[in-house]
């Protein structure tokens, strides 16, 4: 992933070290991150379409492919969200308390989402 070279003016540097190569571009790390976001989005849409086609062609593997599709897409989405939070929202150079502020509701929300999803349609028959 992208790593800003910490020159004297920090994140305002136009030079970014990515994959062992120095990249110089207006906007520095912000522009590089935008490029990565764009590429990830394209990969995401393409893989969604490809897997949809695959599911259509191979109905016998639909469950497996469907699960794989969900996992792949969610992982990409989480990476994208993480990039925005880490670089654009400057979490990387903020006080760690802000990371706690962010992770706590995510934890609580994730737990409750998982719980709610476990409810079978139409409720329970006790």
């Amino acid at each position: 992933m992208a790593e800003a070279t910490h020159h004297e003016d920090g994140h305002h540097s136009n030079t970014v070290r990515l994959l062992r190569r120095d990249i110089t571009v207006e906007g520095g790390v912000y522009t590089v991150v935008f490029g990565i976001l764009a590429i990830l989005t394209i990969i995401e849409v393409l893989s969604a379409e490809l897997l949809k086609g695959a599911i259509h062609d191979m109905p016998e593997a639909a469950v497996l492919l469907g699960a794989a599709k969900a996992v792949i897409l969610l992982v990409i989405a989480i990476i994208k969200a993480g990039l925005v939070i880490w670089f654009y929202m400057h979490l990387r150079d903020e006080n760690r308390i802000l990371a706690v502020v962010l992770l706590l509701p995510m934890l609580i929300a994730t737990l409750s989402i998982l719980y709610l999803l476990a409810i079978p349609p139409g409720g329970y028959s006790v």
Partner: peptide, 21 residues
């Protein structure tokens, strides 16, 4: 900016969950 990026992050999740998965 924090607000706007957050709205963007939410969309990243919505886009994946609602339109792609």
């Amino acid at each position: 900016g924090l607000y706007w990026h957050f709205v963007d992050v939410v969309w990243i999740m919505l886009f994946t969950l609602i339109y792609l998965v």
